[in-house]
Computed example of a mutant assay.
Amino acid sequence: MSASSHSPYVTAMADPATYAPDLAQIEQLARAALERLPPAFRAHLADVVIRIDDFADDATLDEMGIDDPFALTGLYSGRPIGDKSSSDSGALPDIIHLYRRPILDEWAETGVSLEALVTHVLVHEVGHHFGLSDADMHALEDSAG
């Protein structure tokens, strides 16, 4: 019998539930949140890219005047639907960025479920895509929760 077969440390390390969710798991939560949005919203999100990174890059943080990379959990890059026109050919796709490490820190600090937190950040960024007010975003989040 090897020493490692009875070590609680080795057993715990082998259990994936002991690790923080990775980029793919955060993406799964985000895609599930998208699926819970009302169909009228989902129809306009088919071409929006969902991108999960550990942190925003330095250029983004600098552009936004943010010193602490943990202060930004999500970002919408693109033009709101109401600002688009048929002359927008060649434009980059709209992107919703979710930043894993700041989301995980907020999850640990608040005790809010990770699913609820990812949904909250995603819905906020979807709101920017649609040019919604904060009140509209809260109503949308309630429907996706």
Rank of each mutant, 00 (worst) to 15 (best):
S133K: 01
D94W: 02
P38G: 01
L75I: 07
G131H: 02
A71D: 13
Q25W: 09
D83N: 10
D57K: 04
L72K: 02
R36E: 07
P8A: 05
I52N: 06
L75M: 03
S77R: 14
F70T: 08
E106K: 11
T119S: 04
T110E: 02
F70E: 09
A32H: 08
S86T: 10
S113R: 02
F41D: 06
S133D: 05
S87K: 13
M137R: 11
A91R: 10
D105A: 15
G145E: 15
H97A: 11
D68V: 03
D67C: 11
W107V: 03
S89Q: 14
A17N: 13
D94H: 09
L45H: 05
D142L: 10
A20G: 12
E63C: 10
M137S: 12
E63L: 09
L72D: 06
F130V: 05
R101I: 13
S85K: 03
S143C: 03
F55V: 05
G78S: 00
F41E: 01
D53F: 07
R79P: 02
A12M: 08
P21V: 00
H138S: 12
A59V: 07
L98V: 04
L98D: 06
Y99K: 02
V121I: 10
G74C: 07
G90S: 06
G145T: 14
H124M: 01
F130P: 02
Y99M: 00
S133W: 01
A33D: 02
T110R: 03
A71S: 10
G82K: 08
D15A: 08
E125Q: 04
H6I: 11
E141N: 14
